[in-house]
Nucleic acid binder design. Structure first.
Length: 408
DNA sequence: AACCCGTCCAACCGCGAGACC
DNA sequence: CGGTCTCGCGGTTGGACGGGT
């Protein structure tokens, strides 16, 4: 390990990028892709290190970047995600389409922190300042990577009262599976995080990882203004990720029931090998799911309202029990989603497909849900997929959560 | 006009992790 | 199995900018 080799090289430019440099980099990457970043500057004729080129591309030149100030919805989402994820800016950024981790980090440090403090909330713990002031001197200095806010909330909820952080959260776990009391305590907290992941990933209508095209936004509010809530709930799973050491059935049930409204329930298999393709990525109501690897599964078409969602087969649906009220859960989100950025949504679709989704997509969706799901690691999007790499957001986080709860 | 100061943000730095040899 | 390379992440820095004096 050690320092990046490029750091030793001489005669490399540093500092702000000139328009000419931007143009060179942009032309090179759009034409050839980045491949190995260390070779990019040489091939592009830039006096920069590969690291610098990568950063410039990710933070500035990438075509899917959203420009302009953050909306209130985006800020709220950042705060919520930070409460759960801590300073994992890249993962927070993955929930905010077109935004970079750097951008979000800057926003947090320069703006959101202040706002939270003005509201009497500790930005590190998301608790009222009055609660945390006594312990303020014990907060590790920034730079201590082993502590602070970067990993604080996986072993314990951000506050004693989950609802204080996620007001709409209603722990569904107790009614879902018959567990012992001790298990319930762990499971309810675990459910909270699983729920938070599902919820946070459906929380934005433009739920699209910022730096990847391997995860497509499964949203249709853009295309179907009168769509019901279920259509607005994209759910993301890394097709490469699994949920190690967790009961897959329970996990799947929780994830899916938390993510889908009762009105949209149809059945699908516990093994969601469904992956986004250029064709299905923009399908209304279609959700990209993967929760495991079991074999005896099939997806079936949904006859749900407004385009159909899919849900894991569940013997213990919390919806059927009537305990978990979807409408309460999603009401805030729905408002957010419907207020969400239409231009960006359209941009994504156009960007990926070159067209705006038509009604034929609905037919495609049905076909897909009937089992004609094509497995693809990278869907072809006119070469774009070759230089946009998938994040490991879910794989890492589920593993972290799983590990964390194993320790409880 | 000149200076100071605070804010914002692009870019850099150092490190961990994984791939590869 | 250890060394090297590459990538990606999070923390930090420094310059541009704007407002106040």
């Amino acid at each position: 390990m050690g320092r990046h080799s490029c750091c030793y090289k001489q005669k490399l430019r540093k500092g702000l990028w000139s328009p000419e440099e931007d143009e060179k980099l942009l032309k090179h990457i759009t034409k050839y892709g980045h491949g190995c970043w260390s070779s990019v500057p040489k091939l592009a004729g830039l006096q920069r290190c590969g690291k610098s080129c990568r950063l410039r591309w990710i933070n500035y030149l990438r075509p899917d970047l959203k420009r302009g100030s953050f909306s209130q919805q985006e800020e709220d989402l950042i705060i919520e995600l930070h409460a759960v994820l801590g300073n994992r800016w890249s993962q927070i950024a993955a929930q905010l389409p077109g935004r970079t981790d750097n951008e979000i980090k800057n926003l947090w440090n320069s703006c959101i922190k202040k706002k939270l403090k003005q509201r009497g909330i500790d930005p590190n713990t998301h608790k009222p300042l009055s609660e945390t002031q006594g312990r303020e001197d014990k907060v590790p200095a920034s730079g201590d990577k082993t502590a602070g806010s970067s990993e604080p909330k996986l072993l314990a909820p951000p506050s004693g009262n989950l609802n204080s952080v996620v007001p709409e959260f209603a722990p569904p776990a107790m009614s879902m599976v018959d567990r012992s009391n001790s298990e319930n305590l762990v499971a309810s907290t675990k459910d909270f995080f699983l729920y938070r992941f599902a919820a946070s990933h459906e929380s934005s209508s433009s739920c699209q990882p910022a730096n990847s095209m391997d995860y497509l936004p499964l949203r249709n509010s853009t295309y179907s203004p009168s769509s019901s809530m279920d259509q607005n709930l994209p759910l993301w799973f890394n097709q490469n990720s699994r949920l190690p050491d967790m009961n897959p059935e329970l996990t799947c049930n929780m994830m899916m029931t938390a993510a889908l409204p009762s009105g949209s329930r149809s059945t699908a298999s516990a093994s969601m090998g469904l992956k986004p393709t250029a064709d299905n990525s923009s399908l209304p109501g279609f959700r990209y799911l993967e929760a495991g690897n079991s074999s005896n599964n099939s997806a079936s078409s949904g006859n749900s309202t407004g385009g159909g969602g899919i849900e894991l087969q569940s013997n213990n649906s919390i919806y059927e029990s009537g305990i978990f009220q979807w409408s309460d859960l999603v009401s805030n989100r729905q408002a957010e989603i419907q207020l969400g950025g239409e231009p960006e949504d359209l941009k994504w679709s156009e960007y990926l497909n070159g067209t705006i989704p038509s009604s034929t997509d609905l037919q495609n969706q049905t076909q897909l849900l009937n089992g004609a799901v094509k497995e693809e690691n990278q869907f072809p999007v006119d070469g774009l997929s070759s230089w946009l790499q998938p994040p490991e957001v879910f794989g890492k986080d589920f593993q972290r959560i799983s590990t964390a709860f194993k320790q409880i």
